[in-house]
Amino acid sequence: MIQARGLVQTFTTKQGRKKVEVRAVDGVDLDVAEGEVVGFLGPNGAGKTTTLRMLTTLLRPTAGTARVAGYDVATQSKQVRQSIGYVSQAGGVSSYARAGDEVVDHGMLYGLSQAQATASGQQLFEQLDLRGLWQRTPKQMSGGQKRRLDIVMGLVHDPTLIFLDEPTTGLDPQARANLWEHIGRLRSERGATVFLTTHYLEEADALSDRVMIIDQGRIVASDTSENLKAAVSGDQVDLEVADPTRLTDAAAALETIADLVEVDGQHVRGRVSRAGRAVPDLLRDLDRTGIELASIEVIRPTLDDVFLTLTGRSLRDAEAGPTDQPVLEGADQ
């Protein structure tokens, strides 16, 4: 569905008096298969939106090529536009216009007749729980409803490939969970390929078959969320030993399956790859040697751990301080 090779986008920004060239996207290769749901994860300013804008023909790549839905983004942009749906961060519905009118107009710009656009729009209103809001303006809607309306706009011409840019930013947890359900249905009910950007770890985790991590304009990893976590750090196993005199024995037992074992007060901790498989044996072992545990905890690694291992920074730090990169105004909006 998407094949990109060596995508580059450079911007010139002013740093004081000097004009500085910034590579917002610095050689991105990516492949997305039909029917896949891919999460594009990275801190703000990493180049997510810029990449997305190149794939959706809104921005001409400085270098590199991309084929989207079978067409070249640079030379066949019209065909690309016809085949994809795109929901930007800003949405795309005027606050003072009636929702239904906007959806119909949008569909008609894709070449649908007024009747087709109306039918398709109303069906989508049903599917995305917007019943009865056809005549409303976005001003009179909740954040979640507005975001679902944006998605209706992106789907009205029935595209097979959908780009969602930060679909749940700014929503409260309930609205977010609800939107996740709807996004999940895009594939299960419409068979659509979904490419979404996010800087929420939970979101990439919850929605995507595959996570691509982008940092400073380069893709640093691409795999299933499970594999990424397993490959990078393993699970943390934390044993609380009931009898302090047996701490060293417990540590020795844990060392047979874990790396980086450390003792901290009553606790013994270590990193175990695929703890679900290894821990039952460990427990039998401890039981046999008579080491009693007050508690045991297995902590699954998060994508933040993955990000930290890959880039040396945590996702939150990366957002807080773009240390060696000037802030790109508008580049990731």
Binding site: T56, T57, L58, K78, Q79, R81, Q82, I84, Y86, S88, Q89, A90, G91, G92, V93, S94, S95, H106, L109, Y110, G111, D150, M153
Partner: peptide, 17 residues
């Protein structure tokens, strides 16, 4: 400018129009 801020211009530019 208002339309641009609300994403209307971008939404129109992503159609084949």
């Amino acid at each position: 400018i208002g339309e641009w801020r609300e994403g209307v211009v971008e939404a129109e530019r992503v159609t084949p129009a």
